[in-house]
Simulated scan of single mutants.
Amino acid sequence: MDLRLLRYFTVLAEELHFGRAATRLHMSQPPLSQQIKLLETELGTPLFTRTQRRVELTAAGVALKGQAALVFAQMERAVDLTRQAGRGHWGTLEIGMISSLMVGLLPQALRIFQDRYPDVKWTLHELQPAAQQAALKERRLDLCFYRMGPNDPELTSEPLSSEAIAVVLPQQHRLAKRTRVALKDLAEERFISFKLDQSRFAAYLYQSCIEAGFTPHVYQQVVEVQTLLSLVRAGLGIGLLPASTGQFGHAGVVYRTLAQPAPGTTLYATYRKDDPSPVLQVFLNIMREMIEVPDR
């Protein structure tokens, strides 16, 4: 059915007068009468009864009037959603992340994003970087966050923020009284590390120790930050973590700054090069704004 015919019908059903309806539609009365007859022929039933004194809806006309209102309301909704989707104000966003990022930039950006664009449904997926990258290439994720940029021609990364690496010690550790600890001072310690075969960040920290003059004794390898902190608190070893993870407030451990030269870490946002998603760009723009105005 031609929506123009439905529009003509709706106006006439509201006015019940061909002259007034034609005026509202900015057309003359004869063409309006022809269009209504065309609609009635298409539907196979009269929609109006016409006399010299009045125009009234038939039972079929009453039914169509009610349904036409729903059609136009849905059309307006469709147009509005389409425009919102085109601007990135409606849709979905699947985000991959590692648990250590749930302090600082990312949760703040999510709060701003939620406040500005409540019609976008976003979902967090807590995954290791290798799993994030695979899901991103398989289009199960739209955006990933981790601390080492990918080496993949299908993906692009942009650095968002950098921070220092801190050594995490049991509260009663011999080095806990210091304000700064040199990496080489950890040569005899047992390390609690993220899994070396799954985390490029862990491999980077391992190599940093080698460059400092020793091969670290990796006592246990874990996946989650909280597991690492719990093992350190129990006195089973020490760890190297981004300084921001100290905001988790894990009792029984202390964070100490590494003396220079010391490794650092950068947070990257990673996404597919061929992804045109407006929602993705809107979220990335929020993070870029936060970097430009860090005290936001």
Rank of each mutant, 00 (worst) to 15 (best):
Tyr204Thr: 15
Tyr204Glu: 13
Tyr206Asn: 14
Tyr206Cys: 05
Tyr206Ile: 02
Gln207Val: 03
Ile210Gly: 04
Ile210Tyr: 13
Glu211Lys: 15
Glu211His: 14
Glu211Ile: 05
Glu211Cys: 10
Ala212Val: 00
Gly213Cys: 00
Phe214Gln: 01
Pro216Asn: 06
His217Tyr: 10
His217Ala: 08
Val218Arg: 04
Val218Pro: 05
Val218Asp: 08
Gln220Cys: 10
Gln220Ala: 12
Gln221Arg: 01
Gln226Tyr: 11
Gln226Phe: 13
Gln226Met: 13
Gln226Ser: 14
Thr227Trp: 12
Leu229Val: 06
Ser230Asp: 13
Arg233Trp: 09
Arg233Phe: 08
Arg233Glu: 15
Arg233Lys: 14
Arg233Met: 10
Leu236Ala: 08
Gly237His: 03
Ile238Glu: 07
Ile238Leu: 03
Leu241Lys: 04
Leu241Ile: 09
Ala243Asp: 15
Ser244Phe: 09
Thr245Ile: 00
Thr245Cys: 01
Gly246His: 09
Gly246Cys: 10
Gly246Tyr: 02
Gln247Tyr: 08
Gly249Arg: 10
Gly249Ala: 09
His250Val: 10
Ala251Asp: 14
Gly252His: 05
Gly252Met: 02
Val253Cys: 08
Tyr255Pro: 13
Leu258Trp: 00
Thr266Pro: 07
Leu267Lys: 07
Tyr268Met: 07
Ala269Phe: 02
Tyr271Gln: 11
Tyr271His: 15
Arg272Gln: 06
Arg272Pro: 11
Lys273Asp: 02
Asp275Arg: 12
Pro276Val: 10
Pro276Lys: 01
Pro276Ala: 10
Val279Thr: 12
Val279Arg: 07
Gln281Thr: 12
Phe283Ala: 05
Asn285Ile: 03
Ile286Lys: 12
